[in-house]
Computed example of a mutant assay.
Amino acid sequence: MYRLMIVEDEQAIHRSLRKLVETSGMDIRIEGEAEDGAEALAMLEETAPDIVVTDIRMPEMDGLAFIKAAREAHPRIRFIILTGYERFDYAREALRYGVSEFLLKPVDPDQFLHTLAKLLGELAHGDSRVARQSEWLLRHQQRVKELAERLWAVDTAGAADKIREDLADYRDSAGDDLRMGRWALDLLRAVDGELARRGFGIPKAPSEEELPEREQECPAWALEACRQRIAEIKGSRNFGSRYTMGKAARYIQENCTREDLSLKDVAEWLGMSVPYLSRSFKEEIGVTFVKYLIGVRMDMAARLLRETSVQTTEAAFRVGFSDYVHFSKTFKKHFGLTPSEFRKQLSSR
């Protein structure tokens, strides 16, 4: 429910306004009442009105001084000014403070209720727009992170999908406040911030001077900028090189004892997509991730059986197997012998 404050030193007018509001059936209640601007200003913080009905000519602090001070502290408050014919020059001054609703005394009840309903409609529209924009901002922030992930994974198609998704949502939420250039620029700056948190700095931040002259070209401009970032990310990593896949192989060797080690773990460590790593790893190393991991584990198990006196079950555990039967089958498939047979063969030499 919206809140209204009445600032009026004439008690008869004050009482009639209160009665009109209370019997209007509108979604508003009287939250504060004052007889002059100074008293009303002191009450603002506590009452937090959405609409203030105020006279202009009052003792202590007049309506204009009150409106000016109130506007500075609470710019969203709407005002209805009450004035007499002889004070209409004061009403013109109020225009400077963004007040556009004036009612002449004696106040006409229908006109007052019509004006009140109009302001309530504007407030409701503004609140719904703010709510839509706030909800969009939350979705936008999540999509920025997802877009940065697509760029980091050099997924051009996925990045394009995220840009189109965010643009469609922005168009639905912005309403009359649609500004394509601002959307594109804010999107890129936010994405660059996400990339910077991953250790990747963009050489030159996007600026308004780079925006296309035509608003409708801004989405294509944003997509092209994202493609450029993907190219820069690729170049900085030297994707597909034996060096990068060598790093992947070393990571597997150093972490092979983790039973849950996965291709996704390696991809996240390198900062690339799982499909890209899977394809590049096989191309550069010659075997799939799974086969390479099994090979590393089996070589480590054979070394343990050959160079130490640990039990075969302990060897299985040390190389990342919690299921000894599975370990034994894998070992035999790799070496042609079970772990026990392998150790017996070694001792018979």
Score class of each variant (00 low, 15 high):
L4W: 00
I6Y: 06
A12V: 15
R18K: 15
R18D: 10
L20A: 09
V21M: 12
S24A: 03
D27L: 07
R29N: 12
R29V: 11
I30Q: 04
I30P: 01
A34H: 01
A34M: 03
E35C: 11
D36S: 05
A38T: 14
L44G: 02
E46R: 14
D50A: 11
V53E: 03
V53D: 04
M58E: 02
P59W: 06
R71F: 07
E72L: 14
E72F: 01
H74W: 10
R78Q: 11
G84S: 13
E86F: 06
E86H: 12
A91W: 05
A91P: 00
R92S: 11
E93H: 09
L95N: 12
G98N: 11
L103P: 01
L103D: 08
P106Q: 15
P106F: 12
V107W: 03
D108L: 08
D108K: 03
F112S: 02
F112G: 01
H114E: 13
L116N: 09
K118R: 11
L119I: 10
L123Y: 00
A124W: 01
D127E: 13
R129K: 15
V130H: 13
L138A: 15
L147A: 08
A148L: 01
R150K: 14
L151G: 03
A153S: 13
T156A: 13
G158H: 04
D161V: 00
R164H: 08
A168E: 04
S173H: 02
D176Y: 12
L178R: 08
L187K: 02
R189N: 08
A190I: 03
D192W: 00
E194D: 06
A196G: 10
R198I: 02
P203Q: 14
R214E: 04
A222N: 02
R227V: 09
Q228H: 15
Q228G: 13
I230F: 02
A231G: 09
G235A: 11
R237K: 12
S241R: 01
M245T: 06
M245Q: 09
K247F: 04
I252N: 00
E254S: 14
C256D: 06
R258P: 13
E268V: 15
S273P: 10
R279S: 14
I285P: 01
G286Y: 07
D299W: 06
A301C: 11
V310T: 13
Y324I: 10
H326R: 11
H326A: 15
H326P: 13
T330Y: 09
H334Q: 15
G336I: 07
G336H: 09
F342T: 03
L346F: 12
